[in-house]
Each structure stands twice: as C-alpha cells, then as structure tokens.
Design a protein around this nucleic acid. Structure first.
Lengths: 134, 134
DNA sequence: CTACGGGTTCGAGCGCGCTCTAAGTCAAGA
DNA sequence: TCTTGACTTAGAGCGCGCTCGAACCCGTAG
C-alpha cells in the first residue's frame, strides 16, 4: 500500500503521514525499488489508535513517548500501561468538565427560548393583559 | 477592580485579558485617572462563560461572533441561541467520541494488565504447571 | 527623593501541529 | 517518445491562541 492509498484509508494527508514518520510517531516505512513508501495493512491499527489519542487531546510529545516504548518492545508494558492510565484519568476529567459545560449551555439556551416566547407573546397577543389580574 | 486582581480571580494572565479586549472578546474597559483598567464584578460572569466556550473547544472567531451579538443587544437573541445550539450539538458529539475512546483505552489497558499477570506468573510460580493437566 | 510594584501600549515571538512549495524521480498509458 | 500523475526530500510557512519584552507612567512607602 502506497502513501496515497494509506492517506485515503486513514483520512490523514500524505504530508501528515510523512511528518509523523519524520518525528517518529510512525515507524520508518519500507521503501520499494522506486524509494516509495510501501505500507503493510498492520499500520492501520496503529494509526487508528494514534487517532484516538489525538482525539482525546494527548499532545504529540506524549504519543512519541508511547511510540518509543512500543518500538522498544517487551519489558515496557508496565510503563505503557501507566501512561495510558494517566491519560485515561485526564480524559475522564475532560468528559466531566464537558458535561458540566453542557448544563450551563442548556441553561443559557433555555434563557433565550424564554426571551423569544415573551417576544412572540408581545407580537401576537398584545391585547391580552396578564392572566388573572383580579 | 484592576487587571491584576481580575487576573487572579479568573486564572487568566493580565496579558491574556488585554489580548481579549484588543480582539473584542471583552468589552473595552473603563479606565481610571491613571488610565488603568477598572473592572466591575459583572465582567466575571462573562469571562466565566467564555471559559466554558473555550473548554468546549469553541474557536475564538466564534466567540467573537457571539460577543458581537451580545454587544448589539436586543434583537440578536435568536441568532445567539442558534449559535449556542449548534455548539451544543458539537459538544455532545465530542463527548460521545471521547466516551468511545475511553472504551478503547480500557481495552488496551486491560491487555497490558494481562501481560503483566502472565509475567508475574512466570516470575513467581514457574514450577506450577497448568492446573488440572490430568 | 527615590525605589518599587503595580499599571500602560505596541509589536514581536513562540509552541503546536501540521501544510505547502520546490525541484526532482519514476512507471505506466497514449 | 512524451505526458501525466503519484511519489521523493528538505525546508519554509501558517493559523491559532496566547506570551513576552521594551519602554514608559503612576502612586505609595521608606
């Protein structure tokens, strides 16, 4: 699989894929006779996982640490696990924070809904004075 | 309240507060005789709300749009509401995506836990062969 | 009087994560 | 044979959201 095909399958640009290889996030890819990168399908799993880390806000420097441990292979599992567990905690906190923000947004939006209802009342039922004034 | 005090209360730097005013995210603040900004406590509510928008990933240019509508005052409520509703949808989607990522993280971490357990078994019970081999 | 700890403006600089350009190589199809 | 289009490398550039430095202005305490 060449870089263009991989780009299509992952949603990354070919430029981004080369950049990731350059900084060490992706392993150095095999080249064919024309010096073009030739990827094995197994890279897809790794790129997908990197995407998860990115989605959850992990900075590239931390992904690099994880990638380096992965390259090192056996013996680094405990550290990889610890890294992911710390990250998981941050993501959980992030989700909690977002949910709190959603409540605030709901309240704010409800406020505007009420404003519009008052306006609608003014426009369409201006003669109708307060209910039960007596 | 001067800028330093406001900075302390909001967690922003004084530099950031000035920057926000410059770009129009904060209204132009009153100055005292020494040309120093003098804030009313009411600004805190607005800054806090901006913080929510930021936390939820709204880009500054969208906050600027919202801030501009707010400055315009009455008559812009429907658009402000629509803006926040669109944003709320994006945030909900974001939360869903993060939760999906959390599941993947859990799986990955479980994998490492099992790896470590196998290793522990090797280290401490190497003589003990499979249970019930007979 | 002077030193200090605020504040002011203006504009440059920075860290992140790509993104794009330039100049060249290569393989396949018309 | 020539063109097309996808690839190569090296390195410059960019958009975002601040962050910081320079040079200067105040007011108050010692």
């Amino acid at each position: 699989m060449k870089i263009g095909a991989l780009a299509k399958r992952t949603g990354l640009t070919a430029h981004a894929i080369r950049y990731y290889e350059r900084i060490g996030l992706l392993p150095y890819a095999d080249r064919n006779q024309s010096r073009h990168r030739d990827y094995d399908a197994s890279i897809l799993t790794w790129i997908e996982f990197l995407g998860r880390l990115k989605t959850t806000g992990m900075p590239i420097r931390d992904m690099l640490r994880y990638a380096a441990l992965r390259e090192e292979g056996a013996g680094t599992e405990a550290e990889r696990r610890a890294l992911l567990e710390r990250h998981r905690e941050r993501v959980r906190a992030q989700v909690d924070e977002l949910n709190a923000c959603l409540l605030v947004l709901d309240t704010k939006i409800d406020g505007y809904v009420e404003t519009e209802q008052r306006k609608t009342d003014d426009d369409y039922t201006p003669v109708q004075v307060r209910r039960k004034p007596a």
